[in-house]
Design a protein around this nucleic acid. Structure first.
Lengths: 167, 167
DNA sequence: AATAAATTTCATTTATTTTTGAAAGTTTAA
DNA sequence: TTAAACTTTCAAAAATAAATGAAATTTATT
């Protein structure tokens, strides 16, 4: 396999993986492209390489920056903007974890707390609902905390954790 | 909030959360419904409660069973099939982890290995590509292993892990 | 302050995913 | 062996999500 082919395959695969995890394909592809680029890339280049429109590129770059995993860069004497991706994978994972927690897990927890707090009358049906949603609340809260604890280990946390579990 | 309202809110929220993580909304809703039902539910009931078609119910129940998190049950003397969800949350998380690993992570790892193994000529561009995809391969492999190790702790693994990290 | 270069926005179009529903298939029991 | 009860399948329709592209906006330059 040659470089061009490999790069393309990587971008496509990362895009597909993104889709499967609820991230829009183009957003994941742009991210992939920036991850393996050794120097900052302009919007023009991204449009060209992924064959997408200016609007699409602009919106997804904005989204990636909102996630905190892509940065704008300026080159002196150049008007156009360049982009780079967070290349430290530990840092990347931490940012994604924190963001998903904030956007998706925390709001879900709020709802779980609400619905598990209803005044259940005596019926088996209601009793079971409250029990199950309470358990779910506890579980999700615990999972969210585990993720938080894991990612607060600063350097090379994944390796450290793996070692911990191995022994 | 009353029971009906709470149940509906839970189902909707679980459905939305599913979408955000790449699981189709109806599939997540059916799962939610079964999770909080104290007794097995028929396809008819599901169609009625979620206002969906027979085909939709059938296909998503099949998918949930393929994931190993919903089971068919038969009632003696009754022809129709009933469904229940895995209610043990530790077990549920383990099954989802294993399945996503098998379906999504493992294939992605295979590609990462391929593309990181190209014969890079001397250019900075190719050198960087190989380095970055290699790192990514290592990272994803490690993450996959961590998940595997975590979920093989049989009982109440999440709590155990949390304790581990607290100290 | 006028022009040029680049970026963002968003109504519309396009693509993708999900859902429907009716026909085909399966199972059970008379 | 057939017919009723129930489930699955899948082509077509509907709903949803994503992408386009041109106008509006912003930013830099003369």
């Amino acid at each position: 396999m040659k470089f061009r082919e490999a790069k393309n395959k990587f971008v496509q695969t990362w895009g597909a993986l993104g889709s499967q995890w609820g991230i829009n394909k183009t957003m994941a592809q742009i991210h992939a492209l920036l991850m393996v680029s050794h120097e900052p890339v302009s919007m023009e280049d991204i449009m060209e390489e992924l064959q997408i429109s200016r609007g699409n590129a602009s919106m997804n770059l904005r989204a990636l920056m909102d996630w905190g995993i892509v940065y704008k860069e300026y080159k002196t004497g150049e008007r156009r903007e360049y982009f780079t991706a967070e290349k430290d994978l530990d840092e990347l994972a931490v940012k994604i974890s924190k963001e998903r927690s904030k956007r998706e897990i925390k709001p879900a927890l709020k709802v779980l707390k609400e619905v598990s707090s209803i005044e259940a009358d005596g019926t088996e049906e209601e009793r079971h609902f409250v029990e199950q949603t309470s358990k779910l609340y506890d579980f999700v809260l615990k999972a969210d905390n585990v993720l938080d604890k894991m990612t607060e280990h600063k350097d090379n946390w994944l390796a450290q954790i793996l070692i911990k579990f191995m022994k």
